[in-house]
Design a protein around this nucleic acid. Structure first.
Lengths: 209, 209
DNA sequence: GTCTATATCCAGATAGAC
DNA sequence: GTCTATCTGGATATAGAC
């Protein structure tokens, strides 16, 4: 008789699907507002207006404003992670670094608000939740593994590399938003970094190859 | 009889001195609040409370909140400029770069709020006034002249250099505030940059010395 | 130069009816 | 799940008395 013993839904619950769809709609509008007014310029009232609700109704979907930021932070990191995963990484070290640097800078420059939320401390009280922070850690580990694939495993190499690329991105956004004054230096930066890091490597293990 | 013909003050007008002192007191408190709550967390109410005034009275000293930010922005740039000017710049290129990089990173890390105001776009609507912007330009030109003193005059060299150091600073503040994970890479970064830039220079002008 | 009073509007968040 | 009503407080800014 019973095709299913439990009272638990055997298909995705319609209410739940609907709920998730609304959450997504809210997040889309939140990003849209953040892009227009800056990530710290987001307000729940404006968000509710954009999505066609009263401000209070947002609390059905998010427990607080920081909860909205938290989801935005996590989603943005997941997006970056997904792009890294689908990237065809060249086998030569310099090529691998060039490709990842381009990917990262494209990600940063195409959405300054997202950059601010992820990489600067633009929202005074905000700290990602542990689950969300874990996604950010995954992104960092992905970057670290790309560098390791290029033969560079030292922490100092990784930190110098991320500083170099983050510096290009931050300068691009601060001093030439929409332009390419710094993005066009990527190849130059990669050449500089690889020469330096690989030279150090050769020096550390002389006589190899 | 009259020691002075004009009605204009022959000594610094007491009212004016007093006024400037109050302005300075307001600015000091503004920095203090910005350091505690982030530069975008500054409010005129809190500022007035800190200085012992009603919020409305601040308008005697500043025409708007942005005017406060503008003075903060200008003063911070003047401070940086003053430090550059009193810096003993070593004569060797690498030494000169090391010294300026250290100075800049110290300046950034010792006050994250100041860093945010000067180098990120943390306050959505804020743009420095033309007079204030001129001070920022002076700072950039100072940096450019240091690099030129080291024999590097290409725009690409300057941009790569500033990105590298700004990257160290931004990573330090975002990922290890209060620590030295990135500041300790300065020497490494300078070595990397000078090797790269001077090699390019030698290549551009072969046969020189 | 500072105050009271006020304007206008916004913020995030909660309670409870429907 | 959405609403009305409300709380509590904050924001920047102006007018005008003293």
């Amino acid at each position: 008789m019973q095709t299913q013993t439990s009272g638990k839904p055997r298909r995705p619950d319609r209410r739940r699907v609907r709920h998730e769809a609304t959450v997504q709609e809210i997040l889309d509008e939140a990003w849209s507002i953040a892009r227009e007014h800056g990530v710290s310029g987001l307000s729940l009232r404006a968000l509710a207006r954009a999505v066609g609700m009263e401000p209070q109704s947002l609390y059905t979907y998010f427990a607080s404003k920081h909860a909205v930021y938290d989801r935005m932070f996590a989603d943005a990191n997941r997006e970056l992670l997904a792009r890294f995963r689908q990237l065809e990484i060249p086998t030569d070290p310099a090529g691998a670094l060039r490709a990842t640097a381009r990917l990262f800078m494209d990600f940063c420059t195409e959405d300054p608000a997202r950059y601010q939320l992820l990489f600067t401390r633009a929202i005074p009280g905000f700290e990602p939740s542990p689950e969300t922070y874990a996604v950010a850690v995954e992104v960092v580990e992905m970057g670290r593994s790309v560098l390791a694939g290029a033969g560079l495993r030292r922490d100092a190499d990784f930190d110098l590399w991320t500083a170099l690329i983050a510096g290009l991105a931050s300068q691009q956004l601060a001093n030439d938003p929409g332009g390419d004054r710094y993005t066009r230096l990527i190849d130059d930066a990669v050449t500089m970094f690889t020469a330096h890091a690989l030279a150090r490597k050769a020096e550390a293990a002389p006589g190899n190859s």
